[in-house]
Amino acid sequence: MLKARVIPCLDVNAGRVVKGVNFVDLVDAGDPVEQAQLYDAAGADELCFLDITASHENRDTIFDVVARTAEHCFMPLTVGGGVRTTEDIRKLLLAGADKVSINTAAVHNPDFVREASEKFGAQCIVVAVDAKRVDAVTREPSPDGTRFEIFTHGGRKATGIECISWAEKMAEFGAGEILLTSMDRDGTKNGFDLALTRAVADAVPVPVIASGGVGNLDHLVDGITEGHASAVLAASIFHFGTYSIQQAKAHMLAAGAPVRMDETAA
């Protein structure tokens, strides 16, 4: 049967890892390729690079990072951040990415998703959805709010777009997967926003990757069993060595989430 995926995510700025694995045996802790190789050896199911490079002149560094990673890592790779044109997508796929994640560009021009999907196939187009709870009446951000809306710019900029219908629309436009991040939970270690995850996962026919808030291994289980996500993405619990990929998977398996156990993994 299809396994639930565990996906570590690396933030990359101008070709260097910003928030990465804190292992002592790394020669160059800032090299995304070396970190990717560690996760490959550790049996991660997929790897995600999020390019957070702000300056335009450094934007091409990600293509080199992806190409060097693909030369050494024989595992699936999703790359997101700053993807705005079909040319960006083409270059990332040729460099070795399997999937490309579109975020802001989809909000600005939803038809871009349709265009990308027709050109490259739905299976490689991931739409990243950054959602935040807002008060159902005032529409102001509120951790207790019951309405979910899309935010851009790392959660700072409201769009007024309702999240569930947006995810449905993106799937309809050809997104092959939704990477759903709760901006309320991101960085909190309090676990996924399960109500948000489940609402989106139950509404769309495509796989949903849950993201934002993982602080312990039970959170990973919850994302799959209660959030109905097909995959769980986490950054800090793996990067800072709190848990290994194998620990995470063993825990998930014991808790009834189907995962791939790799006996050869480090």
Partner: peptide, 29 residues
């Protein structure tokens, strides 16, 4: 089950003698 089909899944070797499968257990992911 969602479409696209994304992730690791078992391969059933309907013809295990195929040279592609040498050294690979049936139901490998």
């Amino acid at each position: 089950l969602r479409v696209p089909h994304v992730g690791w899944n078992d391969l059933t070797q309907t013809k295990p003698d195929c040279i592609l499968f040498d050294g690979i257990a049936d139901q490998s992911l």
